[in-house]
Nucleic acid binder design. Structure first.
Lengths: 348, 348
DNA sequence: CTGAAAGCGCTAACAA
DNA sequence: TTGTTAGCGCTTTCAG
């Protein structure tokens, strides 16, 4: 079977099986009301001809696509240094596969791409969208809403607690604030008193929430103990350097994620500070590829990233299957927040 | 514009502009033979109605999908610990976007998934496929070939130098063997004499080629200097431990990739060996997130991963546009092999 | 240069 | 239970 030879159609199968197209269609789609001997004949014809339904024709009439868009709106190169997205993707992929749905990946690299994504979503190519890594000023939510496509967000969207109008946004997030609190409390329990925080990119809610968690516990921490980072190792290095300058007596650092912590660790070593003896360090994410590889291995806040991906996909599929109007039991509240857990290793 | 309200059709636009559907179609698709005043009227109608063509209907008649499948066949969790795929994906995404093509991601986790992928590809959902990380015993090439879809492979496929029959497979790879040679020669130039190699997963051609490169230079190396790894940090650790046991006098290690090298580095430190004084270490890939973060930073062989992704996409699009039968200038040879470059950091 | 009309392959009423 | 018959929205000859 070489080349571009046109695939067999329903019609061909029907002819071969000696039945009508409708009957073949029924068998192909679950074969409910077809008597066994006939159904069997159809199945054999399908087999012999190597028939595969033409999705375009099917979509045209059903208005279903069995495809979901995954939009990753990360203008920085961060997406690709950070295993975070890969893990979510895996969770999503598993869930979609189980549901016979395809994953259309939309990577955006900047402003211009947003329009393209909006157009794609509006074009009715997919049944729904999973959207990640929104930034506060992102025009995407508006575009998506305008496209009228069922959507689930990864991470709490940044427009306060609801989208522009009354429809509650569905999202999945981890308990950033609670996790941060637990991390900082652990540091306090270690007897540390000059605890600093290197934030993530503050145009993302996850970074803001983690900072809030830090402040919940360290309400009286001086402003010089909070340095802005950007979720990258380089940002972590920069911030750590500044921190050591501002407060040479710092004895603990809570970093907004593991990558940031890894950068901080390097600067601390460079400055001859021992970890955890002189400075205790805690990260966030429990990205194994990072947290287990640092020296010393990183104490960090674990979140179930792959699980979040799965859950997002599940919520979306439920919305799609049930129709946009009917929220399921899990998403009635708008957002689902998953718990975190402190993982102790050597760094704190 | 809320809800699932049905999108405007060509017909609606035609009516609004006071022309026929055919004319609207012409304008929407480049507007070749339409006189300006009319074309303008159509464009305005499109704008006002927010018309977006229905891809399913279009595909049904054109048999084009403007979509490409990216198949990543990595049963292990490796895909997700390794930024490698993310980088390729970015390159691919950029190129496809520029060509107005969509990226459908097919992740496979095992045998069962292969059938699903084969079915999908055969189903005529996409115009072509980009396939990665094939293993030697992989049934995928056969399925893909049977599906009759234009395909470009990432990495030299493992079936010798050609696919089952005469059609030469198109692939993009880096010069694994040459890069390995350069790395090992560098070690030799450093005066090292007991140079070991930790291989990658030997069911992949990249690992085999790198091993061959090692042997090209170290033809007389004892078999105990070659230990099998699997491209993961854990594999690197295991291999390094075994190596130290077999040959405590080892003074250099060429690891099959950066992740492996990172694992080896950790074991060396654990054993009190100084790098590079006691043991020089070189990796492969120049994955910045890894190579720059190790202690000491890793000397490694760079390959332009994102560039490979772009090139793969470009070759595929050319095949699609030109028809399967007409190989372009770049792919006439079957495979394209990109050069590598040694990047010196502190570890060797 | 523009319009009319014929499908692309499939599903879903509706009849039989 | 099975077959007949309309389209889904679009492109593309073919006339005009």
């Amino acid at each position: 079977m070489t080349g571009t030879a046109s695939r067999p159609t329903l019609e061909a199968v029907a002819e071969r099986a000696g039945v009508s197209r409708a009957t073949v269609s029924r068998v192909v789609n679950g074969g409910d009301g077809v008597r066994e001997p006939l159904a069997e004949r159809v199945r054999r014809a399908v087999e012999e001809l190597g028939y595969v339904p033409n999705q375009a024709a099917r979509s045209l009439v059903t208005r279903r696509h069995d495809a979901v868009a995954v939009v990753i709106a990360e203008p920085e190169t961060r997406v690709f240094a950070d295993p975070f997205f890969a893990l979510q993707l895996r969770g999503i992929s598993k869930e979609l596969t189980a549901h016979d749905s395809q994953l259309v990946l939309l990577l955006t690299e900047g402003r211009d791409d947003h329009a393209r994504v909006g157009r794609y979503l509006a074009g009715g190519h997919v049944d729904g969208a999973l959207v990640f890594s929104l930034h506060l000023d992102d025009p995407l939510p508006g575009l998506i809403h305008g496209a009228g496509v069922p959507t689930v967000f990864g991470g709490r969207p940044g427009w306060g607690d609801g989208p522009p109008d009354a429809v509650p946004a569905v999202y999945v997030d981890c308990d950033n604030r609670g996790g941060a609190r637990e991390a900082v409390r652990h540091l306090v329990g270690l007897g540390r008193t000059r605890i600093a925080h290197i934030t993530g990119a503050l145009d993302q809610t996850s970074a803001v929430d983690r900072l809030d968690g830090f402040r919940d516990v360290m309400a009286d921490a001086g402003p010089e103990l909070v340095v802005e980072g950007d979720f990258t190792p380089a940002g972590g290095e920069r911030a750590m350097r500044e921190l050591l300058e501002r407060r040479p007596d710092v004895d603990a650092v809570f970093a907004a994620n593991d990558l940031t912590a890894a950068g901080a660790l390097r600067v601390l070593r460079e400055h001859g500070r021992r970890v955890p003896e002189d400075v205790a360090v805690i990260g966030f994410d429990d990205m194994l590829a990072v947290a287990e590889q640092t020296d010393p291995p990183l104490t960090t806040v674990r979140q179930d990233i792959e699980g979040m991906g799965r859950l997002m996909a599940r919520l979306l599929l439920r919305r799609i299957d049930g129709g946009v109007a009917e929220p399921g039991p899990e998403d009635s509240s708008g957002g689902v927040v998953l718990p975190t857990a402190l993982v102790r290793r050597a760094s704190a």
